[in-house]
Computed example of a mutant assay.
Amino acid sequence: MKHNLLFGFLLIFTINAFSQDSKFSIEANYPITIDNNFLGDDSYGIVDLGLKYRFAELNPVKIGVSLNGSVLIDNSNQNNSPQDFLVTTYIIQPKIFAELNVESVEKLHPFLGLGYTFMNFQLSGSNNGMDVSGESDNLSGFGFNFGVAYDISNKIFIQVQYDFTKLNVDDVPDIKFNTNVNLLKIGIGFKL
């Protein structure tokens, strides 16, 4: 398994060492919950990983698709009797995006994205003495994001972005409060 993984990385980097204009990039971000948020004030991000593919160039704009996956933890109920459970949130975000290449500032790349967000909430622990481990719930909704990337080198960039999702909770009668998910993501990326 380790040999296959090493071979895969070696193959990707060898192919891209000869390419002039990269269409793929991978990124690792740290997601932070901000503002009045459905996820709660005590949710904190673990990681957000992403892959982008730019399929069209309409000078000065590049159009592409992206896929991000995030993991967040909410332990606001930990050590509070009678609720003592942990909520792990898994987020999948496919998007289409537009990236602007400003000729006067070549290293700066503002971008805007539109897509859909799928969220899965996994519970572990107990609620009022009942084991809730393994229970889960799913929510989804339309979202958009905007941000800016800055090229450190030809291959490495840093970025900051804001993601907003409006959850569709029409089928969930218990949820009558804030249904917005606001995430700030700060990270680093690599152009393949």
Rank of each mutant, 00 (worst) to 15 (best):
L100H: 04
N77S: 15
L100T: 01
I175W: 08
S133L: 01
S153T: 12
I46N: 06
I158T: 08
V71I: 15
S104G: 05
V105S: 07
F144A: 02
L114E: 00
D84T: 10
L72H: 06
D170Y: 10
L72A: 05
L39H: 05
K166P: 09
Q161E: 06
Y53G: 09
V47F: 11
Y162Q: 09
Y162I: 02
N59K: 12
P94H: 04
D84S: 13
V47G: 08
I158C: 08
F164L: 02
T88H: 06
E99Q: 15
V71F: 11
G45K: 04
L112C: 01
G113L: 02
A98R: 08
L167F: 05
L114S: 01
S126G: 10
I156A: 04
D137E: 13
E57W: 14
L86Q: 11
K62H: 13
Y150D: 01
V132I: 04
N128D: 05
S126H: 09
S136A: 09
L112Q: 05
L123N: 04
I96K: 06
Q78W: 15
L86T: 12
D170R: 14
L58I: 01
P60L: 12
P173H: 11
V169R: 11
A149K: 13
L167V: 02
S133V: 08
G129K: 12
P110M: 04
Y162P: 05
N120H: 14
N138S: 13
F121L: 10
D84C: 10
L167D: 04
A98F: 11
V172H: 06
Q122R: 08
D170K: 08
S43K: 08
S43L: 11
S43V: 11
I156Y: 06
Q83N: 15
T89V: 13
I96C: 07
A56T: 01
G45D: 03
L51H: 05
I92G: 14
F146S: 06
N168P: 01
Q161F: 03
I92T: 11
G125K: 01
D74S: 13
P94A: 12
G141N: 04
L108M: 11
D41C: 12
S153Y: 10
N75S: 15
G45I: 02
D163M: 08
G113P: 01
Y162A: 06
G40S: 01
F85Y: 15
I46T: 03
I152Q: 02
L51K: 00
V160A: 14
E103Q: 12
F118C: 05
S136K: 13
L114K: 00
K62R: 15
D41P: 07
L100E: 00
G115H: 00
G141Q: 05
Y150M: 03
G40F: 06
I91R: 03
S124M: 00
T165Y: 09
V160G: 15
I175N: 10
K155Q: 11
A98D: 07
Q83K: 14
N128A: 02
K62L: 10
G129R: 07
N168H: 08
I92D: 04
N77I: 12
I73T: 13
Q83W: 12
K95Q: 07
